[in-house]
Design a protein around this nucleic acid. Structure first.
Lengths: 183, 183
DNA sequence: CTCTTCATGTAATGGGTTACATGATTCA
DNA sequence: TGAATCATGTAACCCATTACATGAAGAG
């Protein structure tokens, strides 16, 4: 149920649903993704509840832009969310479920192939996140240690993303090595 | 949509919905959780589809036990799931979304308090997972390197859980230190 | 001439959570 | 006497995904 708050958080500066989607892709994607089909109704609801204001503006191209602005009640909602402390939702990691049952294949060769594919996938994800980091670095030469506060906290999240992927990658390599040692 | 396959995987040995819930709590919880309200209908559906067989057995206590057994079609379904390669579902990490927006608090003190709470939470989770590892160790003296295949793959998943939590914990400490250095 | 980008949505379906409902036995 | 364990479920709701629908401008 955090999408509401995330949208409010992103609307520190006014924007349209489409703008927010772009922000998801650029900055939040590695820990949260959302589709336009989710974003549009959510924004409408937040407006109905009085946390956002809308104004229709003429677009450069396409249909009229519905620009959402956060109201004071919206500011407050974000602050409350943060003051409640960290939220944990149960994570579900499909590929770990698969690893758990790899023995069902009755074949160390097939199990190994699975782990190698997993390794490659994670390596790709890590490479992509590093590209994102490159972009951030190019956008602001103060990256990572002299960023203003607005950039500092997002940078922390990127950092954890990189750390976790690197740890997962190492785990893959070690797992493959352990499997090889068993045979 | 992996719950189906996980239930099938767990039913290598026959059992009831309640038994499976226990297995979730003991072995899979750190990467997948499921409620009885999800498990019971899912088992019924798998039976209707012909992947499982049911037989009603007299219980030690309570209502009759519905014991599910995997059929050959069920075995096949598990194997197909694994042979398709690793599945990635987009993860959503609420607390990272919160970290991303911590600047909204306009207070390094409050932001720091958030990170400390996060640190404590993760430390608790790590301690709990280590307890789980202790149990596994006690259950089988061959842990971790001389386990039979059935135990080896589950142990890998536990290992990743521990690795990731340890990495997250380090990240928390470093983030708090970096925040302190800024002020 | 086709693909991408801008920009809005709705509808159907699927998956997950919470609440509700029942009832016997065992343990503190 | 009250809580936990065993054992089954249903119903309402919420959240997320996929598919469908429209349409103009600009890039290649």
């Amino acid at each position: 149920m955090a999408l509401r708050q995330i949208l409010l958080g992103m609307l520190r500066k006014p924007g349209t649903g489409y703008d927010l989607k772009r922000q998801f892709n650029q900055s939040l994607r590695h820990f949260w993704a959302a589709d336009l089909a989710q974003i549009y109704p959510a924004l409408q609801k937040l407006e109905q509840e009085g946390l956002l204001a809308v104004s229709v503006e003429p677009p450069a191209q396409g249909p009229p832009r519905k620009v959402y602005r956060r109201k004071k009640t919206g500011d407050q909602a974000v602050r409350e969310w943060l003051l409640q402390g960290p939220e944990f939702r149960r994570d579900r990691i499909s590929y770990l479920a698969q690893v758990f049952f790899l023995n069902e294949l009755n074949s160390a060769v097939d199990a190994r192939a699975f782990l190698v594919k997993l390794r490659d996938n994670i390596a790709t994800q890590l490479a992509e996140l590093k590209k994102v980091e490159q972009h951030w670095q190019n956008d602001d030469p103060r990256y990572p240690d002299d960023l203003p506060d607005e950039g500092f906290y997002p940078q922390l999240t990127l950092q954890l993303g990189l750390t976790r992927l690197a740890a997962s990658l190492e785990w893959c390599d070690e797992s493959i090595a352990r499997l090889d040692r068993r045979n």
